[in-house]
Design a binder for these strands. Sequence first.
DNA 1: GTGGTCTAGACCACC
DNA 2: GTGGTCTAGACCACG
Lengths: 129, 129, 129, 129
Amino acid sequence: MRIPVQINESSAEPLYHQIETQLRSLIVTGQVAEGTLLPSIREFAADLKCSVITIRRVYQDLENEGLLRTRQGTGTFVTRVDTDDREEYKKQIVLEAVRSLLDAARSVGYSPEELKALVDETLRKEERK
Amino acid sequence: MRIPVQINESSAEPLYHQIETQLRSLIVTGQVAEGTLLPSIREFAADLKCSVITIRRVYQDLENEGLLRTRQGTGTFVTRVDTDDREEYKKQIVLEAVRSLLDAARSVGYSPEELKALVDETLRKEERK
Amino acid sequence: MRIPVQINESSAEPLYHQIETQLRSLIVTGQVAEGTLLPSIREFAADLKCSVITIRRVYQDLENEGLLRTRQGTGTFVTRVDTDDREEYKKQIVLEAVRSLLDAARSVGYSPEELKALVDETLRKEERK
Amino acid sequence: MRIPVQINESSAEPLYHQIETQLRSLIVTGQVAEGTLLPSIREFAADLKCSVITIRRVYQDLENEGLLRTRQGTGTFVTRVDTDDREEYKKQIVLEAVRSLLDAARSVGYSPEELKALVDETLRKEERK
DNA sequence: GTGGTCTAGACCACC
DNA sequence: GTGGTCTAGACCACG
């Protein structure tokens, strides 16, 4: 199975982190179903033109998070997680970003109203794209 | 003058970045007035118990952004900026956080409605504190 | 004959090792009698839904230990061992676990008394189950 | 500071795991005090004649466990943990070994009495060494 | 075939 | 100086 991950060469974000973020979101949104056998580290590395070590790190980190399960000699699978856990997982990811937004807003003295207006404005602009 | 900057040792955020963010917000919100002579690099470093190299970098970065101005033999001052520029500056800081929030929301498949609900919920929780 | 072996998918322990340990203990406790003809490699593999290579390795390892004996064209049998040898065998298995427990205890600085207390406590908890 | 870690070249146990186990026990027993600045990964690697990557992995794993704290550009420190947490930590390490001992004993049909006798016997032998 | 460990060596970010 | 990321390539263990 081909996993749709895009690498941004020019970004300062570490490779492994870009891949992790995208793979994580593919999993929690169900675009890569539970039980799926992921490509082998060698295959995926060749596909993304990066080192096997980088992919190994991605798989290992996501395994530590409980999203993947690896068995030597067999391969790496997407873990089965119940739906509530998955929703909770998604919420945590967004909540972290919300909190850091509120921090930023507070640091420059934005009121909740100004903040909401700015969020709405940005959302409208995104829609038109 | 004592600059109220708090360092969070246990954060993964680099030291120089923590200090920059806080000093920047003190300046654009006017809590540190334009024209203010900031502490010397050594003094500030001693105050925050960090390396002079770190403070040097902070001053340099903010000077590159146009918020500070260093005069040989005199010290580092807060630049005069007109009010519109300052407002624009504040907006940019928040906008960046908004964008990264939208990225996070998109990556887990949150709709704009779900996202706004989560922001509102978090704002209400913050108010009650 | 059906050999009662349970595979734990979620364990980090290699498949072949899980099977070996269980089969070994079935033999030394006499639950699988001496002289018994074990299932063929293919049959056992199908039964456990694992690879024939894995079962091959299990039979080979236990044959090297002297517990099994393979005859070309006939199959794999449980070897006859005299009672003393069997008792010695069981003791060795437990002794190995005892030693690794003592290693663990020593590594964190547990005294023999603390260790025995912890063993007793765990045994009592097990009994109540 | 010189950290007393012994590597067993001929063991099948992975290098990184040997080092981890020993460093962990040095920390939880207080032989390496909290707050200690550990050797840099390069220094430690040279000392143990292994790759910096191996040491990096050790430090990272123990950081994930919460025993170490790493700051880029500064070094790696032993985290401050309260005494109760540390005792709990030690207990968990030993408990795991106790459980695997009980598993082994049960698998060969040892009674609790036989097991305790064997543990006592082994402890006495160890003492005489 | 798969993943797991380890190497030597490079370049970058941080203090 | 420190740690953080990434590379290419090797060898071993598992299925």
